[in-house]
Design a protein around this nucleic acid. Structure first.
Lengths: 341, 341
DNA sequence: CTGAAAGCGCTAACAG
DNA sequence: CTGTTAGCGCTTTCAG
């Protein structure tokens, strides 16, 4: 079933059918309606490829996700998807799985498929990969903090500042022996979080103990293993700051396994404020990150460029969203206001 | 940059370049290598659309997901994605969001884009939607239990039997007043689970109390609200069976909010065994479902058909995987063996 | 307002 | 082994 069938059936040329499809205003009402009816009846859909061959627009954007089973990334992804779907676009979700090779391979696929643009969520791809995209003149937007983002469109939160807030809160509550578990991924963001942790301690004149700072896999398991090491130290920390709620969940599990109480023996602070963080016990104090919003803003930015807003294209925009400390029980807040949240 | 540029640069015809791309064995080694080098240097990639126009194969499969933020579905999805990526295919993930309209709209997109096949995860689409696909002769595989699956390829677990196992376990532990919260979605599966619950009670000669059976949104919030109603009854149930871990989490939260103890005052059993289910407190007794495996099997089945295994195409296969009762603390197992798991 | 015809970039049958 | 050429299905000039 192709455009010629329709044309023949309507007794017109293919050009006219094509016009009905693309510029209906240029077709006489009567002819148009006749053709539209036939299209309706036969459930004809123009061939996607033939169309793309002419237009070179695909109505598709790429969406690179570090790990598809991590709710943090999926919430951002959903923000992107929401906007894309509303705009009639489809988002091709690519699961990098923290694997450079897989990421690269997906990127190639996206280029091959001529996507109209790409959103990268906390990507581990390197600068020169992005250059490839620049060459092909395909617009991209970065969500999450990255290295060397000059000239790029970015949506993120200030991780270093957020980390400072978290650590400061622990200090304010009387904890001085503060350990930290930071995830291997996303690399750049976690570097900033570590910097925030260290700077805050330094500013208070507290020593930075090397054995208190551990890199772990960004997962529940990673948090479990890391926290286990921390609590088994001769002088274990009184509090643990983590770079993600998942790590915090694992840490809490390890602490409980040691028959220690949270927060009485060890306080825990997470990062992200995913839905589960107030369902664990005790409810987790954490940094609230506007994940969904980041996705929405990122997607909007991308579409601004795709839809040819010169302005957007030329002036790389950086959108910085706010984080908020969400105080719950796990940090042992003095006033014990946990249940309010 | 197109095939003609390459041809000219190499001093051959476009046909030869095309051959290098598609049937390299039919090209003289010397010519081939020369052309390959030029392709390499110029970073030429064949136009995706032109290619599709000839082949009518897209290297893309559709993947319909009821809700992208639900880890249950995402784990299945990951199984599909794993297989697809390994096969060099890309999976177009479509977030139905329990919204028939959105699902329909995505389905149209998939057809327009001429995907080579579609995997439906617990889809809410109706039979006549599938007929549309049959007409277009596009292979599909269903994951999860569906209505009227005659003639379809299906991968699922026996939900009714699993529910029976769960309820029986509660009965074995001395609970007779058992309530149930079942999610609105996925519809068919939950109907089976309800049937399992009712049959088990009936078989034991226990009354089925209408006020003990509540339909709720399949989410943490839904579970919270539903459980609240249950525990506020004059004669509240001693145990609650839920159709998903998410509902169970919400239920546990509601029970705790009432200052009731789990499992002493109310026992809870979930369904799915998602990663978080042994991080809540108490750890959740639940039905283990091989989610990832379901995705993998579903995808394999689809590719068998796509790759033209006549046999697969003709004889609709139904793969039934096993569930397992995962006993933890929340069900108040007599021997208190929770920590073993 | 409509039709004829020239591409879009690629593949494959056919001829050499 | 290689080149010529006719499509694939659609859009869009250019004439009328």
């Amino acid at each position: 079933m192709n455009i010629r069938h329709i044309a023949k059936q309507a007794g017109v040329s293919v050009a006219t059918v094509s016009r009905v499809l693309n510029h209906p205003e240029n077709v006489a009402r009567k002819t148009r309606e006749r053709i539209e009816k036939i299209i309706e009846e036969t459930e004809y859909t123009p061939n996607w490829f033939a169309r793309g061959l002419n237009f070179n627009k695909t109505g598709t954007i790429g969406l690179m996700i570090p790990h598809i089973l991590n709710p943090v990334y999926m919430e951002i992804a959903k923000g992107v998807e929401d906007v894309a779907h509303q705009k009639g676009y489809i988002a091709l979700m690519c699961n990098e799985e923290n694997d450079g090779k897989k990421g690269k391979s997906y990127l190639e696929q996206l280029l091959k498929r001529r996507v109209d643009g790409i959103v990268f969520i906390c990507s581990s791809l390197e600068e020169r990969d992005f250059d490839l995209l620049e060459e092909q003149n395909i617009p991209i937007v970065l969500i999450g903090e990255h290295k060397n983002t000059t000239g790029q469109h970015v949506v993120s939160v200030d991780c270093q500042q957020a980390a400072k807030k978290a650590v400061k809160h622990l200090l304010d509550n009387g904890y001085e022996q503060i350990g930290m578990l930071y995830g291997t991924e996303p690399k750049v963001e976690n570097e900033y979080k570590v910097a925030g942790y260290q700077k805050t301690l330094k500013k208070m004149g507290l020593p930075i103990r090397k054995e208190f700072l551990r890199e772990v896999d960004n997962s529940i398991e990673g948090g479990y293993l890391g926290a286990k090491k921390l609590v088994e130290l001769k002088e274990p920390p009184q509090a643990i700051f983590t770079t993600s709620d998942y790590i915090a969940f694992g840490a809490m599990d390890a602490i409980k396994d040691k028959s220690l109480r949270i927060p009485e023996d060890v306080a825990v602070v997470g990062f992200d404020n995913i839905r589960m963080s107030n369902l664990v016990e005790p409810k987790l104090t954490t940094i609230e990150v506007p994940l969904h919003k980041m996705g929405v803003y990122g997607a909007r930015l991308l579409f601004d460029i795709i839809e040819g807003e010169e302005e957007a294209e030329e002036n790389p925009r950086t959108i910085l969203l706010q984080t908020k400390l969400k105080v719950r029980k796990s940090c042992g807040h003095k006033e014990r206001i946990g249940e309010m949240f």
